[in-house]
Design a protein around this nucleic acid. Sequence first.
DNA 1: TTTAATGTAACTATAATGGTTACATTAAAA
DNA 2: TTTTAATGTAACCATTATAGTTACATTAAA
Lengths: 162, 162
Amino acid sequence: MSANSRLTIAVHALAWIGLYSEIGGGPATSASIAASVRTNPVVIRRLLSELREAELVVSHRGTPAGWTLSRPAADITLLEVKNALGEGSPFALHSSAPSVNCPIGLSIGPVLSDIYDVAEKAANDALARFTIQQSLDEMLVRSNRTKPSLFVNFTKTVQKMP
Amino acid sequence: MSANSRLTIAVHALAWIGLYSEIGGGPATSASIAASVRTNPVVIRRLLSELREAELVVSHRGTPAGWTLSRPAADITLLEVKNALGEGSPFALHSSAPSVNCPIGLSIGPVLSDIYDVAEKAANDALARFTIQQSLDEMLVRSNRTKPSLFVNFTKTVQKMP
DNA sequence: TTTAATGTAACTATAATGGTTACATTAAAA
DNA sequence: TTTTAATGTAACCATTATAGTTACATTAAA
C-alpha cells in the first residue's frame, strides 16, 4: 500500500451508507461497508471517525448501531470529504529548509507555495463540483440499473457473514 | 521525510542551473545545487537524471562536468517538470479491488477515475501556466534584486567547500 | 441482562522518500 | 598519457504514511 486511496475509501463508504439508507436499511455497519470495500472494519471505522469530526456522518452505538449520513448525499461534495480527511496539498515544500545564503534557497518556499496554492485550488474547485449522490447515481448507472436486486443481494450476503 | 517534495527540489535545481548559466557560470555541479537545497549531491543527481530522460537537462562528464538546461528556462513549465518526475494523480483508487458482488464496488473505480482525471487536469493546467524562468524571476524579486551579489557570493562559498 | 455494534490502542507490514557511502566511469586539460 | 573533478549508480539505512489485524472496553436499545 502506498498511494493515497483514503479519499476513494471514504467516498466508497459514504456512497454505501447513502444507498443503504435509500433502500430503508437504517444505519450501515462498518462490517458491511468493509465487505464492499474488501478491507478490515477497523479501517472503515477509523476513516469514518474523521468524517464524523467534520459532521458528515453520525455514528450510532447500542442497538441498532452503525453509521448514517448527517446530510443528504446530494449536499456532500467530494471536496468536503477530502477536507474532512485533512488531505493537504499533493505538493510539499522542502522537508528541511534550504540555504538562506542563496537567493533561491531564501525565496523558493514562498514562490512555490503560491504556485501550489493556485494548482491545488483548481483541483479543489473541480472536486467541489461533484457530490456523493452524483457519484452514487453514476455508479448505479454503470453497474446496470436493470439489475436492481444486486445491492439487496449483497446486503443479504453480508448479513450472513461470520 | 514523508510528503512529496520532489517537484520542489526539481524546480529548485532547474532554477539554480538557469541562474548559474545566466551569470556565465557554465554547467552547474550537483554539489553546488545540493549546497543550496541543503541535501546530499546524490539526491540531486538522482532527480536530475529523471529530468534528463525527459530531455529537460543535459549532464556533462569529464571537465568541466555538471548540468545545463536543454532549453531556455522560459520554455520549461512546471507541468513538464512534474511529468518528467512521473508524478501521477494525488488520488489513488483502492489498493486492492473492492467486491464485485456489490454494485458500488463494481463501478466505483471507473467513476472516481473520471472525477480524479478532471481534478488532476485542472491542477495540471495551472502548473502549465508557470515556467522555470517566471519562478526564478519571482524568487529574485523576493530576495531583493538590490543585492545582486548574493548569488555570486553563494557560488564562491560553495566552491570553497570541502 | 443480553447483544451487537462502535471506540480505540497497539502492533505489524509495505512502500515511498531521501540521506549516505562507495566506487566505477567519463572526458577535458595538464 | 596521466591527472582530475565531476557524473552514474548500486547498496544500504532511517523515517513516515498507509492500512491490515487483534484485542478489548464501551455503549444503548431490546
